[in-house]
Design a binder for these strands. Sequence first.
DNA 1: CCGGATGTTCACCT
DNA 2: GAGGTGAACATCCG
Length: 260
Amino acid sequence: MPELLEVEYYRRLAEGTVGRRIAAVDAPDAWYLQGGVDAGQLAALLPGAVVAGTRRRGKLLVIDLDGALALGLRFGMAGRLLVDGSAAIEKLEYASGRDEPAWERFRLYFDGGGSLVVVDPRRLGGVSLDPTFDGLGPEAATLTLGQLRRALERSGAPLKARLLDQHRIAGLGNLLTDEILWRARLDPNRPAGALGDAELRRLQRVVRSTVGELDTRGGSHTGDLYGARVRGGRCPRCGAGLTRAQVGGRTTFWCPAEQR
DNA sequence: CCGGATGTTCACCT
DNA sequence: GAGGTGAACATCCG
């Protein structure tokens, strides 16, 4: 999916639907509905409900409705949100900005016009009813030192794999994680539990400052390392050739000279 | 033509 | 139990 930053942009966009009453729901793709919900249930439950607010933890967006109902939206790698036909982000990497009607996996229509639509060409996202944050770690954007320590302690797994594990820390994706580790000058392959106190503190500060800075810049793809994440790419700080390898199952770039 | 890509989940290994 | 791997999803891009 988009990573936490993009989902946060979606959440801000979805805030524009607060106070609006659902007139109809269209869930044409049964595969997209999670948790055993079906289109018939949604059609019975949602119309008449008013959007009460929005929440986000990591990459999960929750739309709260009155009557103790809530919708959970996940966006996979290529999912986008449209409200009244407009997107918070016009173009995602690896996803065209086009909106083929066939890619619209979920639609809410509101009284008086307007709509909320999930467009997801690859069908990697999904919609659930009454989602919980159980199973999601603490929010990366506000990660505390204690939370980071708990996420990493006593683990021999690569540092990057732990940072990507949504059960441990919620919100970091592949691009943000590479950027954070590069800024913190930490090798993604370091055993997660082996970080010293100074390194832990440095990493915690960098997680929060990077999330905050890239939020302002406009998304996960606005990091300093991003442009160098190509074969033959060089470290933007020292010019050394970046190493490219699979870490935690994902393609990873890092500076072998600076990241230890 | 082929391989990968802002992700998650699950089965199946070691 | 802890980790790792590969598959699946469907489209775009180099």
